[in-house]
Write a protein that binds this DNA or RNA. Structure first.
Lengths: 134, 134
DNA sequence: ATAATTGCAAACACTTTGCACCTGT
DNA sequence: ACAGGTGCAAAGTGTTTGCAATTAT
């Protein structure tokens, strides 16, 4: 894994810590700016660091369907065998490790000659909770 | 299916026909504007009609990872059992009907209580051709 | 010392919108 | 006749960038 960031700074630590403190939630760049608004971190730095964290594999970027802004969430333990579901209703991101899904990766590879990138692939649908509400 | 558009116009026909004439390709709003630049259709109309076509289910919208602009492609025969792969390298969209993939839909449903929406879900990875080139 | 990072403001790319005029039904 | 659609230009959103000053190594 090639590290993009060479220096750790006060700002980069604050941003990354914010993600670490909220491992179950995902945030837009704007959410981060708002949450850290008292810390005096510029919007440009937020965007630049988010990009680096993504490239470093420390956080993950989602393009959620409805709104247009990208969402970011920490990804401590999301290795190759972690898949991501996004509920189109409540926008919750579920991280799932599943043998069956590893199976489809192999299936893509073998039968469609397509190397699935599950860091980039996000499954959209309706989660358990939201389904109940209907 | 609830039709959003009530009137057919010269412009809407030109746009939809363009998609029909190019069923294998996907286009950004900008591509459409460029391709139809001689027809005198405003950018606003292109965007408004694309949105309608998507809601009508006539064309499909993709958010491709890298670039930020949405892509649109006609979807004559993309029913529930059609899945979409996007090559992160060449951005080709592959439409695939596959029993195995129908299986994963059931798997999501049964084992993860998650209703997969395969109109919204796009699989990202590297296609056969692009893999060869490396 | 010096390469990376930051903040600012300006630029950008893509998309949406208000409004007056036009068109399909 | 009139609801719906169009074009224009302006405004919005989300993100990126050039540059001079600052900071981590």
């Amino acid at each position: 894994m090639h590290r993009v960031s060479k220096y750790t700074t006060k700002q980069s630590e604050i941003i990354l810590n914010f993600f670490k403190e909220n491992p179950l939630n995902h945030f837009t760049a704007d959410d981060i700016c708002f949450a850290l608004r008292e810390k005096g971190i510029s919007r440009a730095t937020v965007y630049r660091r988010l990009e680096q964290f993504v490239e470093n594999g420390e956080i993950r970027k989602y393009i959620l369907g409805k709104g247009k802004s990208a969402c970011y969430q920490i990804c401590n333990d999301c290795e190759d065998n972690c898949y991501h579901f996004v509920c189109a209703e409540c926008n919750t991101v579920l991280h799932v490790k599943c043998e069956m899904l590893n199976g489809i990766k192999n299936h893509f590879d073998r039968d469609h000659q397509f190397v699935l990138d599950n860091a980039k692939t996000v499954f959209y649908g309706i989660c358990k909770e939201c389904r109940k509400e209907k």
